[in-house]
Simulated assay, not measured.
Amino acid sequence: MTKNDIEALFDEWNGALQSGDPAHVTALYERDAILLPTISNQVRHNHAEISDYFSDFLALGPWGRIDEANIRRFDGLAINSGIYTFQFNDGSSVQARFSFVYRWNGSRWMIIEHHSSRLPECGQPG
């Protein structure tokens, strides 16, 4: 798998967001994946909880773009971490740090961990 292939996994995920269907997005996560979401304080531990988060998030009409990506590959794992920005239907946006951890399941790359946290306000220690 090349760097471009790993970048394409984000494009697939972002495209699933555009579908507006939480099940489409959730299908990209392993059944026991962990999601630490951007706009919720609740850690999501499984498909039901991940789908619940995306039901609310997708209602905002998100569209993401990567501002900085750092890609690494280790045997059956791939990691993409950096900064991304989401634009929403109401014209607002949020910039966040992200980490996607993917695992090869024998037929495709699946998200096993996804962390996304809003960037702190400029000038804040931390």
Score class of each variant (00 low, 15 high):
I50K: 01
H45W: 02
I34C: 06
P22I: 02
G91T: 00
H45C: 01
G82D: 12
I39V: 07
S107R: 15
K3V: 08
G91S: 01
F74P: 03
Q18A: 15
G20A: 08
S81P: 02
P62L: 06
T85S: 09
G61Y: 02
D21Q: 13
G126A: 00
F98A: 08
N46Q: 08
D21N: 15
A33G: 06
E121R: 06
W109T: 01
W109Q: 02
G64C: 11
G123H: 00
D52T: 13
N70Q: 15
R97N: 09
S107N: 14
P37Y: 02
I50A: 00
D90K: 04
R118I: 13
E68V: 14
A78I: 03
V94P: 07
E113N: 15
E30W: 01
P37W: 02
A8M: 04
Q124T: 10
F98W: 09
I6L: 00
L35K: 15
G76D: 05
M1P: 07
N89E: 14
R108W: 06
F10R: 04
F10S: 04
T38D: 01
L35G: 12
T85N: 03
I50D: 00
N70Y: 13
N41T: 07
T85H: 02
W63A: 11
I66D: 02
V101L: 12
I112C: 14
D21V: 12
E68R: 15
F100Y: 15
S55L: 06
P120W: 06
E30D: 06
G76A: 01
P22S: 03
W13Q: 07
I112H: 13
G106W: 11
N41P: 06
A16I: 10
A96N: 00
D21H: 14
I71W: 13
S81A: 13
Y102C: 09
L28R: 15
F98P: 04
G76S: 01
D90S: 05
G76V: 01
T85D: 02
D90R: 04
N4R: 10
P120A: 07
C122L: 08
L36R: 13
I111Q: 12
R73A: 05
G123N: 01
F57L: 10
V101S: 10
E113W: 08
L9S: 02
I111L: 13
W13M: 07
P120M: 07
N105I: 10
N105M: 08
A78N: 04
E12P: 04
A78D: 03
H115S: 11
A27V: 05
T85M: 01
W63N: 13
E113S: 14
R65Q: 11
L28H: 14
A59F: 04
A48P: 05
L36W: 12
N46K: 09
G15F: 08
L58Q: 04
D11V: 09
L60D: 09
S117F: 04
I66R: 11
N80I: 12
I112W: 12
M1I: 09
N70G: 11
Y84H: 15
W63T: 14
G123S: 00
Q42N: 08
P22N: 03
N4W: 06
S117C: 04
L119E: 11
T26N: 09
F74I: 12
G123I: 00
L17M: 01
L77A: 07
E113P: 02
V101C: 09
F54P: 03
N46V: 06
N89G: 15
M1K: 10
G15C: 06
F10I: 01
R72Y: 07
A33K: 07
G106T: 11
R108G: 07
I66F: 03
I79Q: 02
